[in-house]
Design a binder for these strands. Sequence first.
DNA 1: ATTAAAAGTGAGTACTCACTCACTTAAAAG
DNA 2: CTTTTAAGTGAGTGAGTACTCACTTTTAAT
Lengths: 218, 218
Amino acid sequence: MNEKDLLEELIKVSEEDSSLTPKQAKILQAAIETFAEKGYASTSTSEIANKAGVAEGTIFRHYKTKKDLLLSIVSPVVTKFAIPFFADRFVQDVFENKTNESYEELLRTLLMNRFEFVNRNTTLLRILLQEVSLHKEIQELFQKNFLEKVYPKFVEVIEEYQNKGEISKDIRVDTAIRLMMTTLIGFIITRFIIMPDVEWDDEYEIEQTITFIRKGLR
Amino acid sequence: MNEKDLLEELIKVSEEDSSLTPKQAKILQAAIETFAEKGYASTSTSEIANKAGVAEGTIFRHYKTKKDLLLSIVSPVVTKFAIPFFADRFVQDVFENKTNESYEELLRTLLMNRFEFVNRNTTLLRILLQEVSLHKEIQELFQKNFLEKVYPKFVEVIEEYQNKGEISKDIRVDTAIRLMMTTLIGFIITRFIIMPDVEWDDEYEIEQTITFIRKGLR
DNA sequence: ATTAAAAGTGAGTACTCACTCACTTAAAAG
DNA sequence: CTTTTAAGTGAGTGAGTACTCACTTTTAAT
């Protein structure tokens, strides 16, 4: 049901201009399902072809290698996960001092934003987490996006709210970023990857997580 | 250099009574190195045999299947990571109300204890993290150890310190455990797996992490 | 010294792997 | 309608793959 959602999202994302053929979409869908279930290395191209209802050669018409197929799935997830961290209008306003809102609102927006993203793309995140440690191409993508897009913005935020007195000046900026991010990401991974089957009171957990960070850094 | 440490630790652990032959130790060492580097599925038994200086058949003399070899490496890590969470004497004292120390000391002991363990066994943790999502045998081991060994102890701790007024009673016990654990584990994984190459002021980071949790849950 | 059990070997087995290529079919361009 | 380009096919290929087994060597027990 939400399989379609994520595929649509990927289709939109992975090929900026050119659109995919129906068979190519089928290949992506089959690859995503199988990679998530058995891992990249244990998935054979013949299995993907079978599941997609396509000849094996068709895969290699569109993707030079099997690894190419993996990267075409995983790369847009990395960038999409990093970039919109700060694409939200409210967040941009905060950065440009257009609001006097406390950073509680910033945290909430940030967390809910990424929460929804992962909720819609759990399968893709699972593949990403499984493969990131084995493929340096993915690691480099991660590093590039983090260093260029996410990290500098976080430094701004922390420093600004240190000046406003909402974050303690006793804590180093890098340490504050680390604590904030591991709490946010730790929550999302626990919620969707480690324990997706238990019943979650999402609203409550989100609020408690925000409070935890606020009080922890104060 | 610390490769020997971890192997020795594993040897002690993996075979409770019987000792390993030299060749079997070589096999384990080679398997650990290669699994960590390329992942379990992309490592061939012939490669392990080569690196260990052993005939391929020797591997299967000691381990029924390749997966058996993986589990013999990973299983003791799971239990060793979970059990001594509370094996430390001080921590036991705390549980049995033999001390009036604040839970700041509990947190510090807990964190430093696990910090040192992972420091000595980073390679093994890397393999564990890589493979846990693909092998339900490992997942079950995890779940069993967590539910039986770690979780109940954590419930005790949280409730006790809620009564002592060091942890807010407004927060659900499960939520407090989640926030505490993701912060601790998030730090350790960031420190040793994600960013092992940057220079860390470990003492500082440990203290800040403890302060963060304390203030966050208060 | 003899026997029995365990450890070690490496060629062999049946099978799977990612990838190729000569070819057919469909779509787009002129 | 004709030509060009792209999409799709599937049998074929050589290089592995995990694992077996008949055999040799080493160790331990009597």
